[in-house]
Design a protein around this nucleic acid. Structure first.
Lengths: 154, 154
DNA sequence: ATCATTGCAAACATTTTGCATATCT
DNA sequence: AGATATGCAAAATGTTTGCAATGAT
């Protein structure tokens, strides 16, 4: 068993339900956008989502992708990923607690799940506390590089 | 004693030395830019650096700020800060190991130093290891909000 | 003297906006 | 029907580029 995240299996018509739960209207466009977000590897930009999505909905505009992603983030369906590039936004459909590996060679950002690490950090701050700050969530950014031959599974 | 970083005291002519150590030419512009970066609170954007810098060097162009900051980052004098905004880059003159507090209310990114936490994380990975990844540095991103009245010192 | 850096302006890239039209509930 | 989302095109924002002139070593 790996700590690295596997891609979610193809979601069927459950997409509608996920949108409804989040209080969002299930438009044709949002369904396709959400589906793409779940299937795209890594942490796609709006552009990348758009490129995938026009295959199914050729008239779907980039502007709509931006608006849809914004509404997903506002509704908590999707997260924005912190990156050091800063010249484009990246999105992550995985809203569960997880950490990130930044590869300095390939610029990849790899998701990394580790409940044991989560617990360690939470316990540390439960004891220590942060003066003047109420912590909600933690995400560890690990910078380094992938080792040849022994790849972390995507 | 606080774990939150204080601003560095005004650097004298040591700026030249810092540039020289980094292998960078000490131009008038770079001296002013580096000085501004050290004095500006938080994690300024190129724009913000430029606004401060034109006070002392009115002809200093925004393009030059970008180029200077890039060269600082390449030389290890400065870091880019990971942020979730993604529509502009933020820089940090503090290259020592530290963590970040993200305030969801004010959007501030507050530096947070804690050697004990550094050790905890390092020990955790020394034992656990990351398959296929060679970690170089760790930075914990803590999302939450500042508590009224009891501010973390800037 | 040599080579890197600057300033400027134009190009590029990314994100946002406004509004008429279409679509969801 | 009523409210919200879409598509399009224009504008706003942020970053990069090319090149002649300047300045550092």
């Amino acid at each position: 068993m790996s700590h690295f995240s596997d891609h979610l299996p193809p979601s069927p018509g459950h997409l509608r339900a996920r949108l409804a739960e989040a209080g969002l209207r299930a438009t044709r466009q949002r369904l396709v956008i959400l589906e793409s977000l779940l299937h795209l590897p890594g942490h796609p930009t709006a552009e990348q989502v758009h490129r995938r999505v026009v295959g199914q909905e050729p008239s779907l505009s980039l502007g709509t992708v931006y608006k849809a992603l914004d509404s997903f983030v506002a509704a908590g369906l999707t997260r924005r990923v912190a990156s050091t590039e800063g010249s484009c936004r990246r999105y992550d459909a995985d809203c569960s607690a997880h950490h990130h590996l930044f590869c300095t060679d390939t610029q990849e950002i790899i998701d990394f799940h580790d409940p044991q690490l989560d617990t360690l950090i939470q316990e540390f701050f439960a004891v220590r506390g942060l003066q003047g700050f109420q912590a909600q969530s933690f995400s560890l950014h690990i910078t380094g590089n992938k080792l040849a031959g022994d790849e972390p599974r995507k």
